[in-house]
Structure formats: structure tokens, C-alpha cells
Amino acid sequence: MAAVTGPQKAPRRFRWRGVKFLSGVIVLYLALYFWREEQTMEALRTSLGVLAEIVPILFVVVFIAGAIHYWLDPKKLARHLGEEAGWHGWLIALGAGILSHGPMYAWYPMIEDLRRHGLRDGYIAAFFYARAVKVPLLPIMVHYFGWPFTLFLSLYIVLAAWIQGWIVEKVES
């Protein structure tokens, strides 16, 4: 387990991560194939569809991560999202969470990278929870659940995201 525990300066050596996990999933597919051939093929087709959906998002993540590294000085970044950051750090984390798209795991590499430059764990927790507010989908939520529920849920999600981030900071300190 290569847990990142804080800012590190040593260059990373490339290594594949999750090879055993992927091998386990392949074995699971093989076992399921002999049990339910048709459903397993459907699962495989679904997975390929999901993969096609997330590839463009991964490209976006690469471009954003590259741009952040190029234009932002890690020291400045650490000031905005690191130990020295204040309330505006929370606003950035919550705002970025609300505006981010795609599956959560697509953002892990970028978050890991920012964390290496000093991004606080509280902001990460707040970012991930604030992602529950899906701005483009709000009209659909209003359609199914009504505007009062949608309004309160969205407000409470942001509040819960901030509280969780604060608790993470307290626990880790």
C-alpha cells in the first residue's frame, strides 16, 4: 500500500498499481462466464461502454493536472490549499467539488498529485462530498422530488461536506 502521508520531494518511480486487483476481476469474469455466459458478456459490453465514457474525462483530468502544474507554483498552491490556507481554501474545495464531473475515481490521480504538494486532507474530504451536488441534474431532481427537497438537500450537502472536512482536519491533527 503506497499511502501518501504528506508533502514529498523525492521523484516517484513508475509502477503499475492494482495489477493484483485487476487479475482478481479477470478471474471473477472467467468464473462468471462458465456460470452465466450471456450475463457475463453483457457485463463485459457494459464495462467497455463505461470505459468509453470515462476516457474523455481522463483526458480532461490530464490536461487540468498538467495546467495546474505548469501555471501554479506548488508553493502558491500550498498557500491556497495547504496548511496556510483559510476560508478561501474551503470555498475552492467545495466549488471544485460541485463543478467537477465524471466518476470519483477519475479524479484520484490529480488529488494524489495535489496532496503531494500540500493539499489538506480536509479539503479532499470536502471536495469528494460536495460532488454530490450535480448542478446540471438539478432540474431532474426537482422533477422527481420537488424544489424544497432539492434546495435543502443541496444546501445540506455543502454544509455536510464542510463539516466532514473540518472533522478530518481535527482527527488528523
Binding site: 509502477r15 486487483f21 457475463t40 457485463a43 464495462s47 463505461v50 470505459l51 498538467g66
Partner: peptide, 27 residues
């Protein structure tokens, strides 16, 4: 390139997750 390498390194894990997503949706 550095950002792309970061993504490429976790591809096995990501492919595994995508595989599980497919199993879940099908079963």
C-alpha cells in the same frame, strides 16, 4: 506527460473497477 503517467500507472486498478461496474449492472 507527468500527469498522463500518473493516470497510466493506475490503469490496472481503474480497469478492475470498470470491470466490477459492468458485473454489477449486468447481475
Amino acid at each position: 506527460k507527468k500527469a498522463a503517467i500518473g493516470i497510466i500507472a493506475i490503469l490496472p486498478m481503474m480497469l478492475g473497477i470498470v470491470g466490477l461496474v459492468g458485473i454489477f449492472r449486468a447481475f
